[in-house]
């Protein structure tokens, strides 16, 4: 079966935060929890880019590796989920995650962390699919309904793609061929450089 992934086309993202709103509303995510957010780099500068970030459902998930209670699991579709009943809210996963995906609700008046919450790829959690308990703990299980994550389905410019990695990368490839640019995934060169070249220098704002 598929390996479920997100892919954000930075050439298209207009920083409307529609994905964030869709996620918040669909799962009734409480205040202070950001399962998804839009990050803008070079904000206000010519050529600024925005990218929508959430849990990337890593194939070798570092959160999974560091969890002391082993509350993470990966589904057959490659979605990384966790059991909130097993979570102790230690925060190790937050430190391990390179995307800042794990979120912790404030559970008390003294800054005590609650159980971790993160993007579920709209796949719920280890409760009965579609049950009220699953909805309350993890949000709606759209995948079990044969639907894709709402953030991607709501995306106005279709910058955010979600689904089988092979299918969405093919959609992205076709798109890049049509527009004739932006075929490279934004972020890769900045992160790793091209042919060993250093990442481009930061542009200074004109005063």
């Amino acid at each position: 079966m598929a390996r479920m992934k997100f892919l954000c086309d930075a050439e298209r993202c207009i920083e409307c935060n529609g994905c964030v709103t869709a996620c918040k509303n669909e799962h009734e995510v409480p205040w202070g929890i950001q399962r998804r957010r839009v990050v803008t780099l070079g904000d206000g500068l010519p050529g600024e880019k925005s990218v929508s970030v959430a849990c990337m459902h890593c194939s070798d998930a570092p959160c999974m590796a560091v969890c002391p209670t082993d509350c993470f699991y990966r589904t057959d579709e490659g979605v990384v989920l966790h059991d909130k009943d097993q979570c102790i809210g230690c925060g190790y996963c937050f430190y391990a995650c390179p995307f800042g995906a794990p979120q912790f609700p404030q559970a008390g008046n003294f800054g005590i962390r609650g159980k971790m919450d993160k993007c579920t790829f709209c796949a719920g959690g280890p409760e009965q699919d579609g049950s009220a308990e699953e909805n309350q703990k993890y949000g709606r299980n759209r995948l079990a309904e044969g639907k894709l994550p709402l953030c991607a389905e709501m995306c106005s410019t279709k910058a955010l793609l979600a689904g089988d990695a092979d299918v969405i990368s093919e959609i992205f490839r076709e798109r890049a061929l049509h527009r004739g640019k932006g075929g490279e995934l934004w972020g890769w060169q900045q992160a790793y450089g091209k042919d060993g070249a250093p990442a481009p220098a930061k542009q200074e704002a004109k005063k």
Partner: peptide, 8 residues
């Protein structure tokens, strides 16, 4: 990479 198996 996991330390143990899923226990949930």
């Amino acid at each position: 990479q996991t330390v143990g198996d899923y226990r949930g």
